[in-house]
């Protein structure tokens, strides 16, 4: 019994660690038409679709990156394996390809910085170059 209690505590611990972390969705745009909701962000990253003009280009961190796990849990609300199988379906049915992926936060930030319309998720409170704006903050 004690062993199970420990496992449960560990699991709960892992959940709280993620819950305390918040993320920002950061875009290389001068302004946005309207405030982004969680659903808008999900649609942008899963369906590559938004009503925003000019068109936004979502980019992501590689699977296994801590910030990606937080984003998966808080915004997409899907486990990594489901996200992977979803993109396999989209790619091999000729519908869409997944967002471009980066190994590190620095690489992703540099890409967003240099490409107009690029959007990615970051840990909240990160220091940003002046021309990038936060379009969504997780709770």
């Amino acid at each position: 019994m004690r062993r199970y209690t420990l496992i449960i505590l560990l699991l709960l611990g892992a959940r709280t660690a993620i819950a305390q972390d918040n993320i920002w969705v950061v875009a290389n745009v001068s302004e946005v038409d309207s405030v982004f909701s969680k659903a808008d962000v999900r649609t942008l990253f899963m369906n590559n679709s938004s009503t925003q003009k000019p068109v936004l280009q979502p980019v992501a961190l590689s699977p296994g990156h801590r910030v990606r796990s937080i984003f998966n849990a808080k915004v997409l609300a899907l486990p990594e394996s489901r996200i992977q199988s979803y993109w396999a379906q989209m790619r091999f049915s000729g519908r869409m390809t997944p967002p471009k992926e980066f190994e590190t936060l620095e690489e992703m930030l540099e890409y967003i910085s240099n490409n107009e319309g690029a959007v990615g998720y970051m840990p909240a409170e990160i220091e940003l170059p002046e021309h990038l704006i936060v379009i969504y903050e997780s709770l």
């Binding site: 590559n48 992977q84 396999a88 000729g94 519908r95």
Partner: peptide
Amino acid sequence: EELQFNVGRLRTPFLKYSDVIDVGFA
């Protein structure tokens, strides 16, 4: 971004996974 046309030999879409039935990973 919203509109797409395909021409050629295509997989018939019907069931949720019918156009990726060979992709077991999906």
